[in-house]
Design a protein around this nucleic acid. Structure first.
Length: 190
DNA sequence: TCCAGGATGTTCT
DNA sequence: GAACATCCTGGAC
């Protein structure tokens, strides 16, 4: 499996979010390799999206949303790291939040990092999956199309049904439903 | 320097 | 389903 190319990411954020389902996120760390299939995502846009970090002024923290697609965009909420991928072409703000994974490789390492034994609790939430995968602000700005450390690989299963809903935990959501998840997958959050 | 807030998680009912 | 612990960030002062 090869990393998804830049052209995959430089499109409408909602489309990128939807098509990231079923792809595989891999982190190669000194402790070992962990990977998981993406089962839940959310799309975020720019100025017209009140829930987006890019709806406010461009700062050092959110500027990656304006950069080109395919970069790791990481920030902290409620003392938890959130893992996003930038979408859209350079100059157009957009990002996809990865909300849940189905663990594949390195399950024992994930359990150790999370301090829990129940597989369902390892990666079924945005803060949980970063902890299980060992993703931190160190990975901010990493190019997912080139990095050997952190990558999203294509070619995974497409044998699933996609469901959608409103985004979770946002104070002011858009009318559009921008959360995508694999229907019936036990690792989807909530 | 201080402090409110936030795209959450856990634990309790 | 609701309370609350958690802790970094940047803007306010």
């Amino acid at each position: 499996m090869k990393p998804l190319p830049r052209s995959f990411y430089e499109r409408d954020a909602a489309r990128v979010a939807k098509e990231l389902l079923g792809k595989v996120l891999v982190h190669r760390s000194p402790e070992g390799t962990t990977s998981g299939q993406i089962v839940e995502t959310e799309a975020y846009f720019g100025r017209d999206d009140p829930a987006s970090r890019a709806s406010r002024k461009r700062t050092k923290l959110n500027e990656l949303m304006w950069w080109h697609g395919g970069l790791a965009f990481i920030y902290m909420v409620h003392a938890k790291w959130m893992f996003n991928v930038t979408a859209e072409r350079e100059g157009v703000p957009g990002a996809v939040l990865v909300r849940a994974l189905e663990p594949l490789d390195g399950v024992e390492l994930m359990k150790r990092r999370r301090g829990v034994d129940d597989e369902r609790l390892l990666t079924s939430g945005p803060g949980r999956l970063t902890q299980a995968m060992g993703i931190t602000y160190d990975h901010h700005k990493l190019d997912l199309t080139r990095s050997r450390v952190l990558a999203i690989l294509g070619g995974a299963s497409t044998d699933f049904k996609i469901a959608r809903s409103h985004r979770i935990g946002v104070s002011a959501d858009l009318r559009r439903e921008l959360r995508f998840f694999i229907r019936g997958n036990p690792f989807v959050s909530k």
